[in-house]
């Protein structure tokens, strides 16, 4: 009975969030799909004829990381920030709804939208750069890695959304952090090319480990897949823990 209620509540929260996306669908498509694809298209134009299969694979990983970072961190950070600061969270918490159902409902929205993003990116990028075969061979593993990275990004977004003190601060932080993550993740370029301080910083990003493991999976670079997957899971757990801890059902 209790499990049924939690599942129903999760579903309702999920639907409420999806319904809310109705009027934001165009900005969402721009941020999650058009912007990353357009950015990559510009790079391909600039290096026309010089793009090797390896470079194309790097670009594909890069565009996916950029898309996930921009859409998830902005999405969940701003969503949680609004729920908390506009007192919607308090309203929901006054209902017989468990915090787990709320967290699961909100996160599922972004996990589903991440999945859609990744699939669109993989197919459009794969076809455009003629590397679809290579990607499809390891698609399930790639998808799993990116899903874990998405959870890590949900955690980072939640840290911002649950701790920012005003909505303008939430918007500014989500924009800045999502951009920093996209830029500091060695996705478009090998990690060895990055300046040392940024390289150190990038080790704390789940997307770094997802990108390095993904590169190895796709046959570009010789990174230890197991090691990076372990780091990815560890960082994701830490960010999720701190992010979700900020969602208060009973204020002290």
């Amino acid at each position: 009975m209790r499990v049924k209620k939690v599942l129903t509540d999760t579903y309702i929260i999920l639907i409420i969030n999806f319904m809310s996306l109705r009027t934001a669908i165009i900005p969402y498509i721009v941020i999650a799909i058009i912007l990353p694809l357009g950015f990559t298209y510009l790079i391909s134009l600039a290096f026309k004829g010089m793009i090797t299969v390896d470079a194309a694979t790097n670009m594909l990983v890069g565009v996916i990381v950029l898309s996930l970072s921009l859409s998830i961190i902005n999405g969940i950070g701003q969503n949680l920030g609004q729920d908390r600061l506009l007192k919607r969270l308090e309203l929901i918490a006054s209902y017989p709804v468990s915090p787990g159902a709320y967290i699961l409902g909100v996160s599922t929205v972004f996990i589903i939208s991440s999945l859609i993003n990744v699939i669109i990116m993989v197919f459009s990028g794969g076809i455009a750069w003629n590397i679809l075969d290579r990607v499809l061979r390891v698609f399930p593993q790639l998808l799993s890695l990116l899903l874990i990275a998405s959870l890590g990004l949900i955690g980072i977004g939640a840290v911002i959304g649950t701790r920012s003190s005003s909505l303008p601060q939430t918007y500014a932080l989500t924009n800045i952090v999502s951009f920093i993550i996209a830029m500091f993740t060695p996705a478009y370029y090998p990690i060895e090319m990055m300046p040392t301080p940024i390289r150190i910083l990038s080790q704390f990003l789940p997307t770094t480990h997802a990108a390095l493991a993904a590169r190895s999976l796709l046959g570009v670079g010789q990174y230890d897949i197991v090691k990076h997957t372990v780091f990815l899971v560890l960082l994701t757990s830490i960010y999720l823990f701190f992010g979700l801890r900020g969602i208060k059902w009973y204020e002290e």
Binding site: I16, M19, S20, L21, R22, T23, A24, L86, K87, R88, E90, L91, S94
Partner: peptide, 14 residues
């Protein structure tokens, strides 16, 4: 219980 909070915490897009 049911609560009508002090601030109208609405979900605008519903």
């Amino acid at each position: 219980i049911s609560l009508c909070p002090q601030e109208s915490a609405i979900i605008e897009h519903l």
